[in-house]
Simulated assay, not measured.
Amino acid sequence: MVTRRGFIDGVSAAGAATLLGITPSASATTHVGRAVTDAELRARDAIRATNVGMRASYAALKSELISRLSPVIVVQNDATGGEFSLIHGGRPQESVNPVPELFELAKSISHVPQGIFSIIAPYLSGKVPNLPNAGRIDPHDLDMVAFERPGAVSWVSPLQGYAATLTTARRQLGEANLPQELEISCGKILDEALTFIRDSVRSGTFDMASFEEFSGRTYPSIRTNMKYAAAAQISGVEGLMRKWRATIGEEAWKDLYTVVLSIWTTSELNQASIIVRRCMNPAKVATHLIDLPTVELPRDPIFVALDNLARIVQDCVSAEMVFPTDPVVADAFKGKEDLLSVEILHQMGSTAGPPAASFSAAGSACPLHKEKAQPAV
């Protein structure tokens, strides 16, 4: 394996720049209002090379660290309750979907109102009454979603197609062997959905008032489905955590990292994170449980998780060593804050974010220092 030192020694500034997708002096060939001398270009390239070298050594350290991270659980959220993978001793050990099928079935029926809304939403222009929550809807957002011309009826065919799918599910619901309460709630949702579709197609129109009545009638049943889905996920995930904890042992488990991959809209209070958190070492969960929002679910979730985890781990260590005299700045360096943002907020008078950092007293190693609220006990 290529060592960090060997990698750094073998990469020139220009080579590292190419490797990292950086073109030295590409933006330094001109300067506003005057020509740039060759000496100035060389000096600027030399300055850029310092950062190119840093990025090369940073990438090399991260590459080595990826293969050493252990133990790690990677969670990729999906429609079945999540795929969970255990990495121990630097190698993937097992990948499983531990959540009972009841989770997926309960959620599938709960999503029916959203399925209908997704079909009719583009045709809502001029059909939105004064809803109780109208003040929470951005008019421009609504215009972006309701983009079809008023009076268009091309929603009928896709709505009828979805009705055929719902009809099949309703007809076969009794054969799915669901708990009685769940079967009743699923039947109620399907019946109400089919009624809304039938009435809308017959009249050739719909509006948010009629949709709100439909969704309101289904909501109690959706809450029932959520109860069954949540119970299924808790039992499945906690059962797997107990199994893996016994597999790797208590000594290793106390240092467990967990990376939960999810799309942005489910990245806070993520269902998997809530369950896993109480299975981890309470003393380390704040730093070792990472919710990682993604643009879309990655094809290789284990690599994406470990690549990001390696960056987080090495930043946590380097922050305390690069800024040993200023723990507040160190916290920013190893967290989600950007150090330069502190100075930007200061110069902008804190009009665009949290309170600006105040300058620390003379003699402090770092000029940027801000008071940090103490966590509640």
Rank of each mutant, 00 (worst) to 15 (best):
A246N: 14
W244A: 07
T265G: 08
S318P: 12
A305S: 14
I302P: 03
G239Q: 06
K336R: 12
A319P: 13
T266G: 01
S267V: 03
Y257K: 07
I312A: 11
V313A: 10
L256N: 07
R311Y: 00
M321L: 15
A330V: 07
I312H: 12
K243E: 12
K254E: 15
D255S: 13
R245G: 01
R277Q: 15
D331A: 10
I290R: 06
R299Y: 12
G335W: 04
S267I: 01
D331L: 12
L269P: 00
L261K: 05
E296A: 15
A283N: 11
E337I: 12
P324A: 00
Q271K: 04
E320V: 02
F303M: 09
M241W: 06
I263W: 01
G239A: 03
P298D: 08
A252T: 13
A246M: 06
T265D: 08
L339Y: 08
T265S: 14
P298I: 01
E268L: 13
S318V: 08
P327N: 03
P324N: 00
D326V: 05
A252D: 15
T258P: 03
R278G: 06
C279L: 09
C279G: 07
D291K: 00
A286C: 05
A319R: 08
V317P: 05
K284Y: 13
I275Q: 06
W264F: 13
D338N: 07
I312F: 09
V304Q: 11
K336D: 12
A286P: 02
I263M: 08
L297N: 06
T265A: 12
V276L: 15
V304K: 09
R299N: 13
I290K: 10
A310L: 02
M241H: 05
R245S: 07
N281G: 07
L261V: 06
E268I: 13
S273T: 12
I263T: 13
V276T: 08
D291N: 15
N308H: 12
L309I: 06
L289E: 02
I263E: 14
A332Y: 12
T265I: 04
L289M: 13
Q271N: 09
F303Q: 11
A319H: 09
Q271V: 02
R245Q: 14
V304F: 11
L289G: 05
N270M: 03
S273E: 04
A310W: 03
L256Y: 08
A332F: 14
A330T: 10
E296R: 10
P293Y: 02
K284R: 15
V329C: 05
H288D: 04
A332N: 08
V328P: 00
V285N: 09
D307V: 03
N308Y: 02
M280K: 03
D307F: 06
E268F: 10
E337Y: 11
A252G: 10
D315S: 11
W253M: 09
M241G: 09
V276W: 03
V328W: 11
I263D: 03
